[in-house]
Design a protein around this nucleic acid. Sequence first.
DNA 1: CAGGCAATAT
DNA 2: TATATTGCCT
Length: 310
Amino acid sequence: MDTDASSSSSSSSSNSLIVDNSESIDMRVSSSSSSTYGTKSAKQSRGVRVLLVDYDTIALHVILAMLKKFGYEAVGTTGGLHGLKLLREKPYYFDLVVAAVQMPGMSGLELLQRIKLEFTSLPVVLISNDTDPVMAAKGFSNGAGHLLRKPVTFYDVENMWLHVQKSKMDETVNKNRYKEQTGSAGQDSLRRKEKHRSVSGSPSGDDDGSKRVESRKRKGSCKDQSSDDKKNRSNTNKKRRVVWTAQLHTHFLNAIECLGVDSAVPKKILEYMKVPGLTRENVASHLQVLLPTYLVEESMTVKTSLDIIS
DNA sequence: CAGGCAATAT
DNA sequence: TATATTGCCT
């Protein structure tokens, strides 16, 4: 797994270094008292997936190490473009992007802008060498969630997950209306196109901006802090139909791949995906529809290998 | 209660 | 058609 990401054959080879801890997903099933982690209070940072982009390899490694120390799942690269590529390859995967401002080629600001275009609600934290207020203003006006100054401290890293939470807040809860009619026969219905936020994302380059107004559903990480976000769904809010876009589906497949076909049950897949609003039933339904296809593909693979053997 | 699965509904 | 829901069994 994950090998797909490293298959980047960019022109300049010196520019794409990936350091990833394929620690796989924490499989704590929470069935029993998980004493696996000596920590008494589960760190909020644990499991948060961070993409770090910094051309400065020293800083890259240092910050990566710090991230891992605090329990993040971190992937690092030295190239902004490569960072974008990683984001596209693993849609919905990352919870947070941390990027250096000063970089040759694509600067952190540029990267920030492109991320905001493509992955609208993915939080971005910038790291800068100086404290140029103009730059800071630019960063914030472009959607940066925070601006850190080098050198990045343990404190900074420890609290990075907060930015994920913060961006979560903004997205509020999905307020989609869905037709609710209690079994009455009047079903002709005038269903209007819901163009509000739905669970979907748009593939990298297919939207011209006016086509559809969609926003991405991202985030989710630690599961205990849903204290008050669960409340506000008492409005005119009915169930929302999940739209299995290519990206969401890819993420779904990634989840199965990472978990392994055998342990890919709805619950675990859901935990892996961390897509807010997505329910176990959604995953189960999707799984039921897609399993046949998936198995067929696999059997083909098996067949091929058998063929090779014989 | 969670899963897998098939039928049925929207 | 795509996704959801329900029922039935394990």
